[in-house]
Design a protein around this nucleic acid. Structure first.
Lengths: 248, 248
DNA sequence: TTGCTTTCTTGATCCTGGTCAAAGCTGACC
DNA sequence: GGTCAGCTTTGACCAGGATCAAGAAAGCAA
C-alpha cells in the first residue's frame, strides 16, 4: 500500500471511527490499537461493482478516495440510487451478514476496510466507536429524508439544481476555496447515474441541464465540468428555503 | 397516568432502549434505574402537532400508543412525509437541540419521554443504550431507503399497494393473527396523509384505491377499514420481489 | 331531524416528464 | 489519421398523474 494513500486516509478520513484515538481521552487504547492493526485497504476501478445485493459481506469500510453509490432495483429492472458514498463515508452494517444494496464504484475508489467480526467485538468494548457510528448514521438518515422530499415533491428542474448545489457545496468545502463567487467543479456522475439518483430518465436530465445552461444558470466547459457564475441563482432553482446555508 | 397505558408500554415498547435492563447482563443498573425514574409520559390528541421544525426539543421519546408522522415542507407549501412513527419507534435525536421535522399525531398518541440532557449523559455511561439506538437508527435508514425506491421509481398503483402491504404487515405482526388468509385492518391515515407519504395528490390516491377495490384486490367496509382477500395478490401489485416475506 | 364541516370520490382537462428514435460528441485504440 | 463504443443531445409523440371543479358521504353538534 503506497504511502500516499495512507496519507490521504489521514487527511480525508476524518470521520472514520478509528480516528477517535487522537481526540478522545476516554478511549480504551489497546482495543483501538488492535483495530488499527487489523485495518487493510482495497481499491476498485471506476465502474466496478463492490458488492451485489445479498452478497456476503465480511468487512465494513470507510471510503478514503473516490465515489461509490448504493442502488436498489425493482424486479423489472427499474433502479433507484439510495446513497452516495463520498470520502469519509462509512459502508456496511455491523451485525448484517449480507449486503442490502448494490454498491458500485463510479470513480476509482480506495476503501479502508475492517473485518466485520473483530470490528463488531471491538464495538462492544469501545463505546466511542458505536457512539460515533450512531452520529454518522443519524446524519445519513437526515440526508435520506431530505432526499425523500426531493424525490416525492420536486420538479425535474429543481431536482437537477438541488443535485448540482449539493455537489458544488461538497466540492467547495473540500477545497475551502471559491474563486470569487465563480464556482467550478467536475461532475463525478454520468447523466444516467444522475437520473438514477433523481428518479428521472437520462433524457430528462440532459434536457434540464441544457435548459439551465441556455438560461445561464450554469456553464458547461465540457460535459462533465461545470461552473456556476452565481451560486444564489442556482439555489433559487432548488425549491428549498434559501437561507444561503453553508456557503453564504 | 393510568395503569393500562403503563401496561401497554410494557407490552409494546419492546424496542425502547430502557427495556434492556431486563435482558442485558452487562448493564450498569444504577444508571438505567436513574433513567427509569426520570421517564415521564405525554399524550397528544389526533391532529395535534407534537413539534414544529426548529422548535426547541428538550426531550427524546418513544411512542407507546398511536401513530405520529414526520413531515418536511418546501417554502411554497408542498409537503412530504418522511417518517411514520409507530408504537416502539423512537423520536428525537441525542445531541440535537431543535426539531428537524414537523411531528404530528395522526391518531391519539402517548409517548414515553426522557429529558434530553440526562438522557445524553446516560448514553455516554451505558454503552448498550447507544448500541441499541444505533441498531434502531440503521433500521430506520433501511426503511428510508426503501421509501426512496418507492418515491423515485414506482407507479401510483404500486405506491398505494406498497403502503397497504406495509400497514397490513405491521398490523398482522401486532395481532399475530390473520383470519384464514383474510386480512383486515384500519387505515390510520387520511387520503391526504397517504398522498403526502407517497408523493402523490389525494385525488390520485382516491382513484387508485377505487381501482384496487373495483378489481377486487381490496375491499372497503368503510373508507378507513380495509380487508384483503388475498395478500399475495396485493403483493403482486407492489412491484417488489415477491418473496412472500414476513407473512408467508 | 337539520345543518354544517371535513373527508372522500369522480369527471374533464392539462402538462410534465417518459418513451422511442435518431444523430452528434468524445475519447480510446488501432 | 480512421473507426468504434459509450455517452450525450435533441426531437416527436404519448401517457400518467396533477389540477381544477363539482358533488357525495360521513361525522357531529344542536
Amino acid at each position: 500500500m503506497p504511502t500516499t494513500q495512507l496519507e490521504s486516509y489521514q487527511m480525508e478520513c476524518a470521520n472514520c471511527p478509528i480516528r477517535h484515538r487522537a481526540v478522545c481521552a476516554r478511549c480504551e487504547t489497546d482495543e483501538l490499537a488492535r483495530l488499527e492493526e487489523m485495518k487493510f485497504y482495497r481499491s476498485f476501478q471506476a465502474g466496478q461493482t463492490i458488492a451485489w445485493t445479498c452478497d456476503r459481506m465480511d468487512f465494513v469500510a470507510s471510503v478514503v478516495t473516490g465515489i461509490a453509490t448504493l442502488t436498489q432495483t425493482l424486479e423489472d429492472g427499474r433502479t433507484q440510487m439510495v446513497g452516495l458514498l463520498l470520502p469519509s463515508d462509512f459502508m456496511g452494517r455491523p451485525g448484517r451478514e449480507r449486503a442490502a444494496y448494490d454498491v458500485t464504484a463510479t470513480t476509482d475508489v480506495t476503501m479502508c476496510c475492517f473485518r466485520r467480526k473483530p470490528f463488531e467485538e471491538m464495538m462492544v468494548k469501545t463505546p466511542h466507536v458505536s457512539q460515533r457510528l450512531l452520529e454518522m448514521t443519524l446524519d445519513e438518515l437526515d440526508a435520506a429524508r431530505e432526499w425523500m422530499l426531493l424525490l416525492g415533491r420536486k420538479t425535474a428542474r429543481e431536482k437537477i439544481a438541488s443535485l448540482l448545489a449539493i455537489i458544488a457545496r461538497r466540492d467547495a468545502s473540500l477545497k475551502l476555496a471559491k474563486t470569487g463567487g465563480q464556482l467550478e467543479f467536475d461532475l463525478p456522475l454520468t447523466r444516467e447515474a444522475m437520473a438514477d439518483y433523481l428518479g428521472l430518465t437520462l433524457e430528462t436530465v440532459s434536457r434540464q441541464m441544457s435548459a439551465l445552461k441556455r438560461e445561464g444558470v450554469i456553464e458547461l466547459a465540457s460535459k462533465r465540468h461545470i461552473s456556476v457564475p452565481d451560486f444564489d441563482r442556482l439555489l433559487d432553482e432548488t425549491g428549498d428555503d434559501t437561507d444561503g446555508g453553508m456557503l453564504a
